[in-house]
Design a protein around this nucleic acid. Structure first.
Lengths: 144, 144
DNA sequence: TGGTATTAATTAACCAGTTAATAATAAACA
DNA sequence: TGTTTATTATTAACTGGTTAATTAATACCA
């Protein structure tokens, strides 16, 4: 009989919570005919135009390869456009297009509703404490 | 300027934490030449032999389709085997094979180390509180 | 100047998850 | 009994993430 420690139990629970949050996020996003990753990216880009792929990836805490994939899809669907830097042609800078601006407010509202639901009935103190816990976990994971 | 609420900030942080935990999990699992999803499945199966795909999926909180994929891969690599139920041929029951039993203890140790690292310096009270928070979030998400 | 090393983005090949549609079997019922 | 309905697993087509390898452009340096 394999013994599962309390920490392992919470580790699994954490992943379960994230899967559920992801599913719910996609449900909210369907109103904008978009997926959560694209929504995240558009939200970020709408506030930070002209950044390079690497800068975007770093800010969103994903790999440059993952950034490229979602950016490419958003460009193909007319939400954004890429433009290579005049002085350094290795750099590809990303800008919003009309198609993107048109859906931003819907996406913003979806994320807001999503996290209102996610943390329904959490008081300020709970949120602070949870935030501390999550930062603590990040530090632990990155320290490995 | 788009305003991000505290809850949204924590929502993003939560997903970030899960990505990092997933990456770290895979790093630990490479010692057993396996990936985290396969490791999870093997751990579970070693304690619950003879269950059907649907039962397994339900217990692991994933879709039956996701369960099928990882089970199929594990079978191809000789860790487990599937056997259809005598009385109901729709049911496919899963059993450990020697190949699977051989790696269980390594996997178990990896998960233990992973979550020791993840929750390093968390006291009992912190763990209890975090567990409560995560259950609360799950309830909120499923209530939608 | 010319050759080497670095950096940015991309592609390839994966794993892990989803929903929706399909095939096969069992159950229900007229 | 025979037809319809329900259930199980599977497949297809995705998103979203990873690492490793590749390509193209810049920077460095002898």
């Amino acid at each position: 009989m394999i013994i599962q420690t309390k920490k392992e139990k919470i580790g699994h629970l954490l992943m379960h919570v994230c899967r559920e949050r992801g599913k719910t996020a996609d449900q909210f996003m369907t109103q904008s005919k978009i997926f959560r990753g694209q929504g995240m990216m558009l939200m970020f880009l709408s506030e930070h135009e002209g950044l390079t792929h690497s800068e975007i990836a770093e800010r969103l805490n994903i790999s440059p390869a993952a950034a490229t994939k979602v950016i490419k899809r958003l460009e193909e669907e007319g939400y954004i456009k890429r433009q290579s830097d005049d002085k350094d042609e290795r750099l590809s800078r990303v800008f919003m297009q009309e198609g993107g601006r048109a859906v931003i407010s819907g996406i913003q509202s979806s994320f807001k509703k999503l996290d209102e639901q996610t943390f329904h009935n959490f008081g300020d103190e709970d949120l602070d404490r949870l935030e501390d816990y999550l930062h603590h976990i990040l530090t632990n994971l990155k320290a490995g």
